[in-house]
Every structure is written in structure tokens, then in C-alpha cells.
Design a protein around this nucleic acid. Structure first.
Lengths: 118, 118
DNA sequence: CAGGATCCTATCCGATACTG
DNA sequence: CAGTATCGGATAGGATCCTG
């Protein structure tokens, strides 16, 4: 840090100076790869789900973390949220196009790991 | 938790009961998607690197976290480590085949996020 | 150069209780 | 049902110092 710009450093830029870790995508990446964000996205790839369906689907998640993860993903534009103002209220979540784009490599990543059988 | 098996639950299994979050791949996934693990893998996709090259490449990482991340990834079989017993010593890191398999969807994930320009 | 050891702090996250 | 609010323990991670 405090070393000035890293890109377009004229010429003798080292070959491994290829990315910033503080790029804008970092926050979203942190949400996506967070402990529960991964599972929320993968779960929603199977179709839209309601809050309690997500809670039952993702074993071990607390309501707090589910709500928190969903809020972040909605803000990031990966997940949409629809409230049906009935009694009791119904809230449904699903993937946006962006969410599906992100979910694909994420699923692939998971498949690779799963295939390795660890 | 403490609810017994979830797969092969005979018949009336809900459609969203599709995965365990405590599957064996979880540990590796946690390493891969950890704060710094992501960048180590992406950095090494550009070619083998020495310790100090990685440190300079991944801006903001501390030596402690770099060493810790590398140790985990080596144990997971994603990264190999080669020590040249010279003075001063040289240690080089690179991706294994498994590491390249994992790195691909990871790179794709990052590209999607980057393309979205957030 | 490539780390290990130590200390200390920020945050993550689960448990619990409460609300519309 | 679908959350929010608060508390406290666990953990991640940064800074610093030290070693082969």
C-alpha cells in the first residue's frame, strides 16, 4: 500500500502484477464466497425458494445469517426478493440474471471439489 | 443437525433438500474461497511464483496470511511447493492439476464479477 | 529470503429473545 | 412466517519481532 498505481506502470511492470485485491468486485466476491453465500446461491439455482425453504435447505444456517446473507446478495444484485403481504407474510427469493451468471462458475467450482471426493 | 440422514430419504423428500453443507469438500472450499486463497490461486494461474513474488503480487496480504494460505492449499493438493536449499533459500509455488481445475471456475467467477463492473 | 511465534483486535456467527 | 436486536464466544487476520 501507499505505493501508487499498479496498472499501466509504463514498461518494466513485473509479470505477476496483474490485479488489485482492493478492486470494486472484492466486496461482492466476499459475499459470494462467504460461508453461507455460496449455499444460498447454489440452493436458488434449483428454483425460487421461500425463506423457510432456504433455512431448511441449508443445514446448519441460523436465521440471522440467512437473513444477513440474503440482504447482501440482494444489494449486490444477485438475488431478487418478493414480498407477498398476506398473513402470514410470504417472501420469495430467486436469482437474477447476474446471479445465474455467478452461480454457474460457482456450481462448477463445487463440482470440481466434489469430484475430487475430499 | 442431529436430524439424521438427509439423502435417500425414501420418497417424500422436498425438492430443495439437495446438499449437505458439512460435506467433505467444505474444508477445501473454505480454503479456496477464503479471503486470500482466491488471490493466491489466481496469481499462480499466471505461472509459478516465489514467496516474495506472491507477496508483492497480492497487495495488502501479510506474510503470515500468505504463509498460512499457502500451507492450506498445499495440504489440500491444489498447490505444490519446491524448496531450493540455497542461501538465501528459494521456495517456489505452483498449481497442481487439481489446482488448475479449481482455478478455472474461480477465474471465471472473478471475470463475471469484474465484467459487471462493481 | 522465507518463514515461525506472539500478541492483539476486528468480525463473524450462533443463541436467545422479541416484533409485525 | 419472516424477520430484527442484542449479547458473547470463537475465529480470522494484521503488526511486530525473531530465526535458519
Amino acid at each position: 500500500m501507499t505505493e501508487g498505481p499498479q496498472l499501466a506502470q509504463s514498461e518494466s511492470v513485473k509479470r505477476y502484477e496483474v490485479f488489485h485485491t482492493d478492486c470494486p468486485a472484492r466486496d461482492v466476491l466476499n459475499h459470494v464466497t462467504s460461508r453461507w453465500g455460496v449455499w444460498v446461491l447454489i440452493a436458488l439455482r434449483g428454483g425460487d425458494l421461500r425463506f423457510y425453504e432456504l433455512r431448511e435447505s441449508i443445514h446448519g444456517i441460523s436465521e440471522k445469517m440467512l437473513a444477513q446473507s440474503l440482504r447482501a446478495l440482494v444489494q449486490d444484485g444477485l438475488v431478487w426478493r418478493e414480498v407477498e403481504p398476506t398473513t402470514p407474510p410470504q417472501v420469495t427469493y430467486g436469482l437474477t440474471q447476474f446471479g445465474r451468471d455467478i452461480g454457474e462458475p460457482l456450481q462448477e467450482l463445487f463440482n470440481q471439489l466434489d469430484r475430487a471426493g475430499r
